[in-house]
């Protein structure tokens, strides 16, 4: 057991967790951030993506103790009442089908757009390579990210 102080979506939590506990477990089971899904727990699907200091990480591969001192953002932290432009673009472009990949996909996109505000299609496609989606064939997801990038540039 270890006591960790976690910063999730701007809120600070102080928790006792086993050394081996995964961030995904802490987020879902202890803190109730159920927006973060998982599909493989092996680092293969990207479904469990969250942001750590703004960069996309796989919460099934990260230990909770490693998350200490980093700012963790889950989909709940991106926007629920007021949606982030990426979330809105996913709706507008029809990029959401079953929605199971969506939170991870949106956070991976956020990480990309924060680093590269005007990515090319190729850059988007490469940035999302670790995030699987079985429903959409990716076409509308990539369109959504590109469209969000355009909108975010217009309204900084």
């Amino acid at each position: 057991m270890k006591t960790v102080t976690l910063d999730v979506n701007g809120k600070v939590f102080c928790l006792d967790v086993p050394d081996g506990e995964l961030l995904i477990e802490t987020l879902r089971d202890r803190l109730g951030f159920l927006g973060t899904k998982y599909s493989c727990l092996e680092g293969d699907c990207g479904v469990c993506t969250v942001l750590a200091d703004g960069k996309n990480v796989l919460s099934c591969l990260m230990l909770t103790v490693e998350a200490e001192g980093r700012k963790i953002t889950t989909i709940e932290g991106l926007g629920q009442k007021d949606l982030h432009p990426i979330q809105q673009a996913f709706i507008d472009e029809g990029a959401v089908q079953c929605g199971f990949c969506t939170p991870g996909m949106i956070l991976a996109s956020k990480s990309l757009l924060d680093a590269h505000p005007s990515p090319t299609q190729d850059e988007v496609v490469h940035a999302l390579d670790g995030n699987l989606c079985r429903c959409t064939g990716y076409v509308r997801i990539v369109n959504a990210v590109l469209s969000a990038a355009r909108k975010m540039k217009k309204t900084p």
Binding site: T36, E76, G79, V96
Partner: peptide, 9 residues
Amino acid sequence: DARQKVAGE
């Protein structure tokens, strides 16, 4: 259902 899905709800 898109709004709930993109918001993680």
